[in-house]
Design a protein around this nucleic acid. Structure first.
Length: 497
RNA sequence: GUCCCGUUCGUCUAGCGGCCUAGGACACCGCCCUUUCACGGCGGCGACACGGGUUCGAUUCCCGUACGGGACGCCA
């Protein structure tokens, strides 16, 4: 039997990195075992679901290159099936009508309300299954329903016994029936609820392995109960440890902002493969300890058994521009930028330059070679794609800023440099051909002639040509910028004013 | 409140009774390389939450405590 797994997000916001990791693990498992990876949008909460969110989820998966098989499923489209299943359980006596009027809950304080209620019931010793309508006679129930009285449909959780399942990650799980309340299957407006919908859809889609966040672990018992009532086999279950904020709390948009949104990583210059690689390392460790893994290697090494049980902390520092996200994520990204095949990097740099109006069509044409060479030269010290338009601006435009610190350190500190560099410009102007070697020879000869250290001219030139104090070898910069631009920039008065 | 889950360097983790003087990666620090900054190389700092068992021997197994997380809805 081929494995079938699904990623089933609810479209109530951007794609959270925790959800993205769940998607990744499902996808890896499917690709590893030759199974199918399906996508289901759980849009049954029409109040909060948006098309925009659905689009962002699909875009996010595309960005991470997690392709899904078969048609996208919208859970809302299956509502009639969910309802029919509930009717069936009702008819079979495995569920019952609850005529208790619906309680109103303010959406903001639900969590507190729920635990409050649970606490109170606990203290009073109320049984979870003591609903007064649980044992209402069929006749009376039918009569009241026929009379138009509103009712919710609840699953009749058996009197005594327990549910059990073997979680692939967390091991054997047991829960006594007495701890599970008669859960609502159908709302009084006949709207099917989550636990019912997931089970029906998973059955319908032939899901063999449910891989999802650990926050669903205890609720899984309820779903097992539904599978059993329906007489359907329970799929294999694997729950994933959660990704927490640095304070060990929940990672949420409200509290932590854009750092938890997948699109942020795309917008801030992450290479998709790099972020995917990083995500895979959160809660899972490859054998051999090799951490930079291609898509193929990830698939080859992945296994559900290799997933850890402890929650992982996503380590970032709020309000620190350099540490805006996890250090290791940044490192993985720089590793990719630095070592990935240049042909794969070029289109990404192109998009980045284009977005910043630094792109020229010649880079794709006559200057293709120059462009590749330049990108290859500067990528060594970059962390994100953004750096190509930021720190790298001087390589693609004559309009760039001078870093104050660099100007003070490499130029103003030695006032003679203003004239010395003009002299160097005159000298370089005569160099033919102009390349790394000849530029170096000319500069060193000029240093000798004028009796100054080559380093003084090198550092001064770097700042004149790039506005910075750091960067590639000066002679490589001369070569890449060419004689004309190099000479012109050396003669510039801008940094001196 | 009840139930469930977890706890190895600051962070991600390896470890599935002796190979552990607890390994790797990121971060941090130092040295080398380099007339810049990175990369790279070498080295340093740095952890088995605590207490009981079991065992010839516990990071590894069991129990308890502490701490953290999750769940408990006519949300998903």
């Amino acid at each position: 039997m081929t494995n079938r797994v699904r990623f089933a997000p609810s479209p109530t916001g951007y794609l959270h990195i925790g959800a993205a990791r769940t998607a990744l693990f499902n996808w890896l498992f499917a690709r590893k075992t030759g199974g199918k990876f399906l996508l289901r949008i759980e849009d049954t909460d029409l109040q909060r679901s948006t098309d925009e969110s659905t689009r962002s989820i699909i875009e996010g998966l595309e960005w991470l290159e997690l392709d899904y098989d078969e048609d996208l499923v919208f859970q809302s489209a299956n509502a009639p099936k969910h309802r029919a299943a509930a009717e069936r359980l009702l008819a079979e006596g495995k569920a019952y009508r609850d005529f208790t009027p619906k309680e109103q809950r303010s959406d903001t304080s639900v969590k507190e309300d729920i635990s409050e209620r649970a606490r109170a019931q606990q203290a009073e010793g109320v049984d979870q299954r003591s609903n007064p309508f649980r044992n209402l006679s069929k006749e009376e129930s039918d009569a009241r329903a026929a009379a138009g009285e509103p009712f919710a449909v609840r699953l009749k959780v058996p009197e005594s016994g327990q549910t059990r399942f073997d979680d692939i990650v967390y091991g054997p799980q047991e829960r006594s029936y007495s701890e599970i309340e008669d859960l609502v299957l159908l709302r009084s407006d006949s709207h099917p609820l989550y636990n019912l919908s997931v089970v029906i859809d998973d059955i319908e889609m032939g899901i063999t392995h449910v891989i999802r966040g650990q926050d669903h672990l205890t609720n899984t018992h309820k779903q097992v109960l539904i599978y059993e009532a329906l007489g359907a086999p329970v799929p294999r279950l694997a729950h994933l440890p959660l990704i927490l904020a640095p304070n060990k709390g929940k990672l949420s948009k409200r509290k932590h902002g854009e750092v938890v949104s997948l699109t942020t990583y795309r917008d801030r210059g992450f290479v998709p493969a790099a972020f995917r690689n990083f995500l895979a390392l959160l809660g899972w460790a490859p054998p051999e300890g090799k951490e930079i893994l291609s898509k193929e290697e990830l698939i080859e090494y992945f296994s559900l058994e290799g997933i850890g049980r402890a929650n992982a902390i996503f380590n970032f520092t709020e309000n620190d521009p350099r540490r805006w996200t996890d250090d290791k994520a940044l490192w993985v990204n720089s590793e990719y930028i630095r070592t990935m095949p240049i042909e794969e990097l070029l289109p990404m740099v192109k998009a980045e330059l284009r977005a910043n109006k630094l792109w020229r069509e010649e880079y794709d044409d006559d200057d293709r070679e120059w462009f590749a060479k330049t990108v290859d030269l500067i990528r060594q010290r970059y962390f994100t794609l953004k750096d190509f338009s930021g720190q790298g601006r001087a390589y693609f435009s004559d309009d760039f800023d001078f870093d104050e610190t660099a100007v003070n350190k490499n130029l103003r500190k030695e006032p003679r440099l203003r004239e010395l560099l003009k002299g160097l410009a005159d000298k370089l102007e005569t160099v033919e051909p102009f390349n790394t070697e000849t530029a170096e020879a000319a500069l060193r000869a000029y240093a000798e002639e004028t009796g100054v250290k080559a380093g003084l001219l090198i550092n001064g030139s770097r700042t004149m040509l790039t506005g910075q104090s750091v960067g590639p070898s000066m002679f490589e910069i001369f070569d890449v910028l060419g004689k004309e631009a190099s000479v012109e920039r050396l003669r510039s008065g801008i940094p001196w004013s």
